[in-house]
Nucleic acid binder design. Structure first.
Lengths: 143, 143
DNA sequence: TTGCAAATGAGAACTATTATCATTTGCTTC
DNA sequence: GAAGCAAATGATAATAGTTCTCATTTGCAA
């Protein structure tokens, strides 16, 4: 078992409980980087872990507040979470298959800061989502 | 009365009805550029126009599909609509008061296209939202 | 090993939105 | 202008995603 996880939780002021460890494990060890609450719930169920949906929502929110996870809002009002690895980035979302790819562009970042400050805003946060079709990629939902 | 509105509707293949004219009027003549379905519903109610909430949602969606309005999804799953005036732009949203300001930056736009195509995506659409605090602006919700 | 606050799970409640369906309305034809 | 009919509307039920409530359980410290 991973000795690391309880420390993450402790540092965040959160008790080290079974549901929290399972959920954190999904993000740290799982293959999916981006998961919605529903995704997490289903994965837990299908691996035989009996965690309530309310707990999933609660824990994801706590992890977000603790800075362990980052939450992204995509179109249609769905939100997904991913491990916070400190490096900010934006997203390209495939409209065909939902595949999410990350990118970072310093030029865009600095333009944004400039634009906001010119207009008298102090930037807290931003989200940039490019909605596109995978052209060269293999897209599991198109045949 | 505005002779223009029925033509917009007709061109969009939509019958010119009382609720549709009122809603379009709110966007064309009202002071708010960005309104959620709930905003529109409340404005209609308070001006004595008796339009059902379901109709508001339906009409907004139709207007969006007809290209009369553009829909934006903001954090927290709320979506707002604004008149489509042909010019794409992005948004700065004030976290204190919800005020929405528009901007357009050619450098950001072209970087986005470049990034997507380098990665094998054909861009359909994108959304860039900067969440910030009004620093110099007067913000009705902070005193 | 007991005690107690914190966490959980089940389900109710809530919010935003969409669907259903009987009634009403706008346009077309006479 | 009146009749007919499809389209549009409004009330309400349904749905999806998420949060709240509260009785029960659990983690951890004494």
């Amino acid at each position: 078992m991973d000795k690391n996880q309880p420390e993450h939780l402790k540092n965040a002021g959160l008790k080290s409980t079974v549901p929290r460890l399972k959920i954190l494990g999904l993000f740290e060890l799982g293959q999916e980087r981006h998961m919605s609450a529903e995704d997490v719930y289903k994965k837990l169920l299908s691996s035989g872990d009996d965690v309530g949906l309310a707990t999933v929502y609660r824990v994801l929110t706590q992890f977000e507040q603790a800075g362990l996870l980052v939450r992204h809002y995509f179109e249609g009002g769905k939100s997904v979470f991913e491990l916070n690895q400190g490096k900010h980035h934006d997203h390209i979302v495939c409209l065909q298959c939902g595949h999410v790819e990350e990118f970072y562009d310093a030029a865009i970042e600095s333009r944004q800061k400039k634009i906001a400050s010119e207009r008298g805003f102090a930037v807290h946060d931003h989200s940039l989502h490019i909605y596109a079709d995978c052209v060269k990629k293999q897209c599991p939902y198109k045949q």
